[in-house]
């Protein structure tokens, strides 16, 4: 696979990264560098701050389900130097995947990590607002996982709209309260009319 026209060789990045932060690199290929998940944020921050790589922007981040593990892929780019770096982190735990959030370094991770959390189920520690984004709280499973349709009892699509499901209050589309103040939260609860709230759980 030819790397992108402006993509930096993973070996070169890995070499410099290892020199600055010993032990952070797990493997490296021509295209990407794999870093230790626990030290991901350190690596990202170093790349962001270093004048050699100047990875100022998180271009893209997404996860790949490899059946037994998850791969989180970050495409960083430097606008001034016009190059691109691919960073990967492998999450070994397929049941309860978790990774430190890149939000501390890149604000652009805010929505992208919410998307990954929603569709892949990876929990990002340190993310300021980790909620599902496309699907509603209480949606069973994470649809982009390879075993999603194997969860049992599930067919793609919904039989009903979520707020019609009065027997299952947890499925009612109910977004998080606005973090305005405590009274806002109380009001928020009142905002939902009774007949939308569904029957109270027995």
């Amino acid at each position: 696979m030819p790397p992108g026209p402006t993509q930096l060789s993973g070996h070169r990045v890995a070499e410099r990264l290892n020199a600055a932060l010993p032990g952070v690199v797990v493997t490296a290929t021509d295209e990407w560098v794999e870093v230790a998940p626990a030290r991901l944020v350190d690596a990202l921050r170093w790349l962001h701050d270093s004048s050699e790589f100047d990875a100022a922007q998180l271009s893209n981040c997404c996860a790949v389900d490899r059946h037994d593990r998850f791969e989180m892929v970050y495409h960083l780019q430097s606008l001034d130097l016009n190059h691109q770096i691919a960073i990967k982190a492998t999450i070994a735990d397929h049941e309860q995947p978790a990774l430190p959030s890149a939000y501390a370094v890149y604000k652009g991770a805010l929505l992208q990590e919410r998307e990954v959390y929603d569709l892949m189920g990876i929990v990002f520690d340190g993310h300021p607002d980790l909620r599902r984004i496309f699907l509603w709280e209480g949606f069973p499973g994470h649809p982009l996982r390879k075993d999603f349709l194997g969860l049992g009892n599930l067919t793609p699509g919904l039989a009903r709209f979520p707020f019609e499901d009065r027997d299952r209050p947890d499925r009612i589309m109910n977004p998080a309260p606005l973090r305005h103040d405590a009274s806002a939260r109380a009001q928020n609860e009142q905002d939902v009319p009774d007949d939308w709230r569904g029957a109270a759980p027995a």
Partner: peptide, 17 residues
């Protein structure tokens, strides 16, 4: 505006899946 929350997903068709 003192606080804002964005809610999307009404048009989610799961293209990636």
């Amino acid at each position: 505006i003192v606080d804002m929350d964005m809610i999307v997903g009404y048009l989610h068709r799961s293209m990636e899946k």
